[in-house]
C-alpha cells in the first residue's frame, strides 16, 4: 500500500509498434513528476494510459493504493489538462469549470460556490459569463486548470499544457502552475518536450526515449549526473559535448560551461580554431573545431572571437562525464 501514483511495467502497443515498453515509475503523494522526451517517445501515450483513454497491454497502474488499471476513465478520479485545453465550446466559462461537479450531481448552490472560489483563485471571476472562444489563449489555459482543480482529484495529468502559449506567457504560467501544485499537494504528471519546463517544475524528471524511461531522478541529478548519452545530450542547452575518446571504449561528455577557453597558449590545453561565435546577450557560445572534433564552449558576455581565430581550450577535469560507448551508459566516477 502506498499513496501517490505507481506504474508497474506498463506496456502499450499499437499494432506491432511498442509505444510504451515496460515503464515503471512511482510518484509520492503531492509530487510533481515531469515526463520529458522528444516527440514520439511515448510520453503522451503513457499519460493517456494513466488517464484511462488507452488500455495498457501489460502492467498495473495503482493510484492511492488501489489498482485502477481496468477502470473507466470517469471512475479514476484523475483530472487532465490537454494541450488544446479541450474546453466545451457551447458552455460558458462558469459551466465549463463547474462541469465535473455537475456530472457528479452536486447541488447548484454548491457548484456556484466552488466555481466562484476556483475562478477567484485563477483570476477568472470577470470572465465567468463568457464563452471559451471569447477568451485569449492564456485565459483558456486558466479555465482548463480551474476545471481540473475544482473537484480535488487524486492526480493531475497535464499534456504539454503550456505549449500553445507565447514564450512570455509560458514562463509566467509555468511559475503559477508550480505554485498552484505546491498549494494543492496533489500528485502531478506533466508531459513536455521542453527541458526548461521540466527542470523548473519537477521534483523528479523521467526522461523518456523510444517508449522507455532513460532516467528517473531529480532535475539536478538529471543535469549533473546523466544516466546515459541520450539524457546527457537531451537535457541542457546548448547540449553537452559528447566526444569519442580515441584509443578507449569511452565517450566523454562535457557541458559547454565546463569548457575553459584561452586566447593564448596554455600548457596542456588543446589548440582549436573558432568556427562560429554566437552572442546570446548574457553569455556567448563559441563553437570550436579541433581536428575532427567540434566543441561548444560557453564564454562570458561580450567575449568576441573572430572566425578561424586560434584559441586554446581544456575540459575541467572534475566535470568530465564518462560513458561506455557500447551501452552508452554512464561509467562510475
Amino acid at each position: 500500500m502506498s499513496d501517490g501514483l505507481e506504474l508497474d511495467r506498463i506496456t502499450k502497443r499499437f499494432g506491432t509498434r511498442e509505444a510504451v515498453s515496460g515503464v515503471s515509475l512511482a510518484a509520492k503523494d503531492g509530487e510533481f513528476i515531469v515526463l520529458l522526451g522528444p516527440s514520439g517517445c511515448g510520453k503522451s501515450t503513457l499519460l493517456r494510459t494513466i488517464a484511462g483513454l488507452e488500455a495498457p497491454d501489460e502492467g498495473v497502474i495503482r493510484l492511492a493504493g488501489r489498482d485502477i488499471t481496468h477502470r473507466e476513465a470517469r471512475d479514476r478520479d484523475i483530472a487532465m489538462v490537454f494541450q488544446s485545453y479541450a474546453l466545451y465550446p457551447h458552455m460558458s466559462i462558469a459551466e465549463n469549470i463547474g462541469y465535473p461537479l455537475k456530472v457528479r450531481k452536486r447541488g447548484q448552490p454548491e457548484i456556484a460556490r466552488e466555481v466562484e472560489h476556483v475562478a477567484a483563485r485563477l483570476g477568472l471571476t470577470s470572465l465567468l459569463k463568457n464563452l471559451p472562444r471569447q477568451l485569449s489563449g492564456g485565459e483558456r489555459q486558466r479555465v482548463a486548470l480551474a476545471r481540473a482543480i475544482i473537484r480535488r482529484p487524486k492526480a493531475f495529468l497535464m499534456d504539454e499544457p503550456l505549449s500553445n502559449l507565447d514564450a512570455r506567457l509560458r514562463v509566467e504560467m509555468r511559475a503559477e502552475l508550480k505554485h498552484l501544485q505546491h498549494e494543492l499537494r496533489i500528485v502531478t504528471l506533466y508531459v513536455t518536450h521542453d527541458q526548461a519546463e521540466a527542470m523548473t517544475l519537477a521534483h523528479r524528471i523521467a526522461v523518456m526515449r523510444d517508449g522507455r524511461v532513460q532516467q528517473y531522478d531529480t532535475p539536478s541529478n538529471v543535469y549533473h549526473r546523466p544516466a546515459n548519452t541520450f539524457v546527457a545530450g537531451f537535457v541542457g542547452s546548448p547540449s553537452m559535448n559528447l566526444i569519442e575518446d580515441p584509443g578507449s571504449n569511452v565517450t566523454l561528455g562535457i557541458r559547454p560551461e565546463d569548457v575553459e577557453l584561452s586566447r593564448t597558449e596554455q600548457s596542456g590545453w588543446t589548440q582549436a580554431r573558432v568556427y562560429v561565435t554566437e552572442e546570446m546577450g548574457n553569455e556567448t557560445l563559441v563553437v570550436l573545431n579541433a581536428g575532427a572534433m567540434r566543441v561548444t564552449a560557453r564564454a562570458g558576455a561580450g567575449s568576441l572571437f573572430d572566425f578561424d581565430a586560434p584559441v586554446w581550450f581544456r575540459f575541467r577535469p572534475d566535470k568530465i562525464h564518462r560513458f561506455d560507448r557500447g551501452s552508452s551508459l554512464r561509467l562510475p566516477d
Partner: peptide
C-alpha cells in the same frame, strides 16, 4: 480531446 475531457470529468 473535448470528448476525452468530458470522460475524465466523469
Amino acid at each position: 480531446e473535448i470528448e476525452e475531457a468530458a470522460m475524465l470529468d466523469g
